[in-house]
Amino acid sequence: MFDHVVFGVRDYDKSREFYLKVLEPIGVAVVSEGELGIELSSDGKSSLCIRRKLEKNPAHLHLAFVAENRAQVQSFHRTALEIGAQDNGGPGLRPNYSDQYYAAYVIDPDGHNIEMVCHEDMS
């Protein structure tokens, strides 16, 4: 899990809606919102900070969020596609990472690779 991640977006409102919807299954909600942008968290220990347009073309990044179970990974992927995200790898095991690595990937409104991963042991 990360402590915090901060990045700028081109369309703040679209990105705000995207992250609130796709991260709802793991309890992510608004911690604060102001002139700079929004801070989201599910546990008060780590946060995702989305900043209003900071530059013409924000740098691409990869974010991986921890899910407690595989159903949350599936919900994340389904919801993201329903609201227009691009599929970048459907829910499934990724044995090249580990025997328990169950993940899904989408591309967000700014082209960032967003992952939801569960390390739940199903054996």
Rank of each mutant, 00 (worst) to 15 (best):
P91S: 07
N69K: 10
Q72Y: 05
I107F: 02
Q100P: 02
V66M: 10
Q100D: 10
I50D: 07
D108P: 08
Q86Y: 03
G92W: 00
P95T: 04
P109N: 12
Q72K: 13
D108M: 07
I107A: 12
L61R: 14
S47Y: 06
K56G: 13
A64H: 05
A67L: 07
D99T: 09
G89Y: 00
P109K: 06
D110T: 08
R78Q: 15
T79P: 05
R52D: 02
Y97I: 03
D110C: 10
R94E: 00
N96C: 02
K56A: 15
A103F: 02
Y105Q: 07
L61A: 12
N96M: 02
F65S: 05
G84Y: 01
I50E: 07
H60F: 10
I83W: 00
L81E: 04
E55G: 15
E68D: 15
H60T: 13
L81V: 08
P58L: 04
A103Q: 08
G84C: 08
Q72F: 03
N69D: 11
A104N: 03
L54D: 09
A71G: 13
T79S: 09
C49Y: 04
R51S: 11
K56T: 13
Q86R: 14
Q100L: 04
A59I: 06
H77R: 10
P91A: 05
P58F: 01
G92E: 01
G92Q: 02
I107E: 08
R78L: 10
H77Y: 09
N88W: 01
G84M: 05
R94V: 00
G84T: 06
R94P: 00
R51M: 08
T79K: 09
A85I: 00
R52K: 14
P58A: 11
P109W: 00
K53H: 12
H60Y: 12
V73Y: 00
V73K: 03
H62P: 10
Q100E: 07
R51N: 12
I83M: 05
